[in-house]
């Protein structure tokens, strides 16, 4: 699912192996390749540019420090980095006093545009066959309530109970929305992998 690389460019796995061998140029290349994606992920969680930049730097430092723990048998480099970045961003959100302010902003977003997560997918992008647009297309096909439940769980680290309280929805309904939504995305990704 990773966007295609320029011909001759090292794969993510090759870069990770070089980082494990303490090659800082490989880290610089990995940064160039993925800083935009990881920054977007962090921003989606904490909604603050300066804090997101600081966290991005800390996350790439952690990638450097923890590279020895990466195993290709357990998954792909981008998945590992995203998991790490998400955890750090959610930890940061919870630790900071700004949590209350973020909650307020989230409340407004939740009330105003529950489907804002992937609203920017366009037919033009999909026609271009861009992997990112195809993923957005899979997600944007979900009913808004399922998108919202997944958004709150993944990007805000909320439990099912917290989502139920936040959206004033029965717990069982939240569980169903999450299960159905995640299954649809998982199945959509499987089809996407088969196409690529």
């Amino acid at each position: 699912m990773v966007p295609p690389l320029e011909p001759g460019a090292p794969t993510d796995l090759e870069l990770m192996e070089r980082i494990q061998a303490r090659d800082d140029d490989a880290l610089a290349q990995l940064y160039d390749r993925y800083n935009g994606i990881l920054k977007a992920l962090i921003l989606r969680v904490i909604h603050n540019e300066a804090e997101a930049d600081d966290l991005l730097q800390e996350i790439f430092m952690e990638i450097w420090n923890q590279a020895k723990n990466f195993s290709a048998q357990k998954g792909k480099p981008l998945g590992w980095m995203v998991t790490l970045a998400r955890r750090r961003a959610i930890d940061g959100l919870r630790k900071k006093q700004a949590y209350a302010r973020a909650e307020e902003r989230l409340q407004n977003e939740t009330e105003q545009q529950p489907d804002a997560w992937v609203h920017n997918a366009t037919e033009d992008e999909i026609v271009l066959g861009d992997t990112r647009a195809l993923i957005r297309k899979v997600i944007s096909r979900l009913p808004p309530a399922q998108q919202q439940a997944i958004d709150l769980a993944f990007f805000k680290g909320m439990s099912q109970r917290e989502i139920a309280a936040k959206t004033n929805t029965p717990l069982g309904t939240v569980k169903t929305r999450l299960e159905l939504g995640l299954k649809k995305i998982y199945d959509g990704l499987k089809d996407l992998r088969d196409e690529l």
Binding site: G79, V82, A85, Y186
Partner: peptide, 9 residues
């Protein structure tokens, strides 16, 4: 892979 997909979205 869902993590990767959410980030790429």
């Amino acid at each position: 892979d869902l993590h990767e997909a959410f980030a790429l979205s």
